[in-house]
Simulated assay, not measured.
Amino acid sequence: MKKLIILLIPVFLLSCSSTEKHTEELIEKISSSKVELFKNVKIEARDYNNGVPRAFFFTKELNGKEYLLPNFLAINCKLEDSLCFKNYTDKNFDIVSFAKANNVDRKKAFKYTEEYIESVVKEYEKIGVYKILSSSQIGDCIIFYINQDEFLAYVQDINKVFNNFWKTNFDKKNKISKKWYYGKI
């Protein structure tokens, strides 16, 4: 029995170091992305295409209102074609209202929103996480789900996190650096 335990110790230590290395690599990948682009965004993979997470839509919160935005790249619909989106996702998207909330006039609404959606989706796919969660109800943080059970959280200031569940998780979980937390749910 002692020999078995002694043999398993290096295996355990190697698995810990590979997990830590993976976490560090993921933080580096996220940090080199446009992290602030995900502020007040909720996006989740519905499937994977060659290992790349695919979300068919996501929400962006502005001034307390959530706007549901389509991933026209995955759905293969033109942004102006609301019927195509409706048939594919059974959801209603309000592109013009989103643009208007960003002080963009109706004439430029589709172009502006298309560029915004494309930038969010491309960064999300580049990072390769399962889900990203950020909202004013949680506070000033962006949570990157590695999978359904593990997360990395980018927290500018713990005092600006309002949601007790997350604040408690950030307090109890491993603080990796000044702005990063890692945990399991």
Rank of each mutant, 00 (worst) to 15 (best):
M1Q: 14
M1C: 14
K3P: 03
L4K: 14
I5G: 08
L7E: 15
L7W: 04
L8V: 02
I9L: 13
P10T: 10
V11P: 10
F12C: 13
L13C: 15
S15H: 04
S17C: 12
S18V: 09
T19E: 14
K21S: 15
T23F: 05
E24P: 02
E24S: 15
E25M: 07
E25K: 06
L26H: 05
L26G: 08
K29I: 05
I30V: 12
S31H: 10
V35H: 04
V35G: 04
E36D: 15
L37S: 11
L37C: 01
F38Q: 03
K39N: 11
N40S: 09
V41S: 01
K42N: 15
K42R: 13
A45C: 05
R46Q: 13
D47E: 14
N50D: 15
V52C: 07
F56G: 11
F58E: 02
F58T: 01
T59I: 05
T59Y: 04
K60H: 12
N63Y: 08
K65I: 13
Y67P: 11
L68Q: 13
L69V: 07
L69N: 11
N71A: 02
N71P: 11
L73D: 15
L73W: 03
L73M: 15
L73N: 14
A74W: 02
I75Q: 06
K78E: 11
E80W: 11
S82Y: 10
K86R: 13
K86V: 00
K86T: 01
T89G: 03
T89S: 15
N92P: 02
F93W: 04
D94C: 00
I95R: 05
I95G: 08
S97F: 03
S97E: 13
S97L: 10
A99G: 00
R106A: 09
K108R: 10
K108L: 08
A109T: 11
A109N: 11
F110C: 01
K111H: 11
Y112L: 01
T113R: 05
E114F: 09
E114H: 11
E115Y: 01
E115N: 14
S119A: 12
V120C: 09
K122Y: 13
E125K: 12
V129R: 05
Y130T: 07
Y130P: 10
I132Y: 00
L133K: 07
S134N: 03
Q137E: 15
I142R: 00
F144Q: 05
F144V: 06
I146F: 02
I146G: 08
N147I: 04
D149R: 09
E150Q: 12
F151H: 03
A153N: 00
Y154G: 00
V155Y: 09
Q156A: 11
N159V: 04
W166L: 01
W166A: 00
N169T: 00
F170Q: 08
K172H: 07
K172V: 05
N174C: 06
I176S: 03
I176M: 06
S177V: 10
K179A: 02
K179W: 04
Y182P: 09
G183H: 03
K184G: 00
I185K: 04
I185N: 06
